[in-house]
Amino acid sequence: MKFAAIADVHGNRPALDAVLADIAALGIDDVVNLGDHVSGPLEAARTADLLIERGFPSVRGDQDRILLELRQAGTSARSDFQQLARKHFDWMASMPPTLMYRDRVFLCHASPRNDAAFWLDQIADDGGVRASPIEAIESEAEGITAEVILCGHTHIPRVVRLRDGRLVVNPGSVGLPGYDGKLPVPYVVEVGTPHACYALLEHAGGAWTATIRYVPYDSAAMAALARSKGMLTWASAIATGWIRSERSWAAPGQNGTPWSPR
């Protein structure tokens, strides 16, 4: 048994295209999707159209849920909301918050019981983001009998082997390798590479293994799109994998010319 897991595409269609091409080149047909498909200032509708076409087993992320809540409220000025048609909202509404895949793999967005929780990582009082202790990870996994548990949300790729042998995997983010937040304290997540990220899962020889893959793609257009909409944190993260000021970075191939998020 071998399949790929993707998560947190966040409307980054070129990154998704690159990841799906990489998966196909490896001869893998089966893909699962862990949510937060379209939210953000990028290409929500184009991304949703491709994911609808592919029909991957998918769960609803917290940002998918928020978009649906905005629709129930009536309307929103958000760029992603404005791009989406009824079919896109209906598609997100059809997704469950959790899903069992092939009777062996449990899919959730953030944690088994909370679609917006940090699970394999935690936010410290000083704003640092660090690996969670094994005891906390195992506590959230209680009652789940699946051999593999897949989660996303943090955008931080992580593979954790529980002490009873179960495997918990966060495949990282396809479309957004960095972001900032304010709760419970201000914090920043930076993966450190602009590459799109996903995971390969395989069961062979009686054991599960997980491999994290990083896929390069031309991120300049998506960084420029985020920048044009005033999303400077997104622009920096997409272009570099870090969140920095415009003077701190040069875009690839520009021979040291400062990359500007404006």
Rank of each mutant, 00 (worst) to 15 (best):
residue 3 F to I: 10
residue 3 F to M: 11
residue 4 A to E: 04
residue 5 A to Y: 01
residue 8 D to L: 01
residue 8 D to Q: 03
residue 10 H to F: 05
residue 11 G to A: 03
residue 14 P to D: 08
residue 19 V to C: 07
residue 19 V to Q: 06
residue 20 L to W: 04
residue 24 A to D: 01
residue 26 L to I: 10
residue 28 I to N: 09
residue 33 N to W: 06
residue 33 N to Q: 06
residue 34 L to K: 00
residue 38 V to S: 00
residue 38 V to D: 01
residue 38 V to T: 00
residue 38 V to M: 00
residue 40 G to L: 04
residue 42 L to S: 01
residue 43 E to N: 10
residue 45 A to M: 02
residue 47 T to W: 03
residue 47 T to S: 03
residue 48 A to M: 10
residue 48 A to F: 02
residue 48 A to D: 05
residue 55 G to E: 10
residue 56 F to L: 11
residue 59 V to K: 04
residue 60 R to S: 08
residue 60 R to P: 09
residue 61 G to H: 01
residue 64 D to W: 00
residue 65 R to V: 00
residue 65 R to S: 00
residue 66 I to T: 08
residue 70 L to I: 01
residue 72 Q to V: 10
residue 72 Q to E: 07
residue 73 A to V: 05
residue 74 G to Y: 02
residue 76 S to N: 01
residue 77 A to F: 00
residue 79 S to D: 02
residue 80 D to H: 01
residue 84 L to G: 02
residue 84 L to Y: 00
residue 86 R to Y: 12
residue 87 K to N: 11
residue 94 S to G: 13
residue 95 M to F: 03
residue 95 M to G: 02
residue 97 P to S: 07
residue 100 M to G: 13
residue 101 Y to P: 12
residue 104 R to F: 10
residue 109 H to V: 00
residue 109 H to A: 01
residue 118 F to A: 12
residue 120 L to V: 09
residue 121 D to A: 11
residue 124 A to Y: 09
residue 126 D to N: 13
residue 128 G to K: 15
residue 129 V to C: 11
residue 130 R to N: 14
residue 131 A to M: 09
residue 132 S to A: 13
residue 133 P to Y: 11
residue 137 I to E: 02
residue 139 S to Q: 15
residue 142 E to G: 15
residue 144 I to D: 14
residue 145 T to Q: 13
residue 145 T to V: 14
residue 146 A to W: 10
residue 147 E to W: 01
residue 147 E to T: 02
residue 150 L to T: 01
residue 152 G to K: 04
residue 153 H to Q: 02
residue 153 H to N: 07
residue 158 R to H: 14
residue 159 V to Q: 05
residue 162 L to K: 10
residue 163 R to M: 07
residue 168 V to K: 05
residue 170 N to D: 04
residue 170 N to R: 06
residue 171 P to I: 01
residue 173 S to M: 14
residue 175 G to Y: 04
residue 179 Y to N: 06
residue 181 G to R: 10
residue 183 L to G: 15
residue 183 L to D: 14
residue 187 Y to S: 04
residue 188 V to T: 15
residue 188 V to N: 15
residue 191 V to G: 13
residue 192 G to F: 05
residue 197 C to H: 07
residue 199 A to G: 06
residue 200 L to I: 12
residue 203 H to Y: 12
residue 206 G to M: 12
residue 208 W to Q: 03
residue 209 T to Q: 12
residue 210 A to N: 06
residue 212 I to H: 09
residue 214 Y to Q: 13
residue 215 V to M: 10
residue 218 D to C: 12
residue 223 A to Y: 04
residue 223 A to R: 06
residue 231 M to T: 08
residue 234 W to T: 09
residue 235 A to P: 15
residue 236 S to A: 10
residue 239 A to F: 14
residue 240 T to S: 15
residue 240 T to D: 12
residue 241 G to V: 05
residue 241 G to C: 08
residue 243 I to L: 15
residue 244 R to L: 15
residue 246 E to K: 15
residue 248 S to K: 13
residue 254 Q to R: 11
residue 255 N to S: 08
residue 258 P to K: 03
residue 259 W to E: 14
residue 262 R to Q: 13
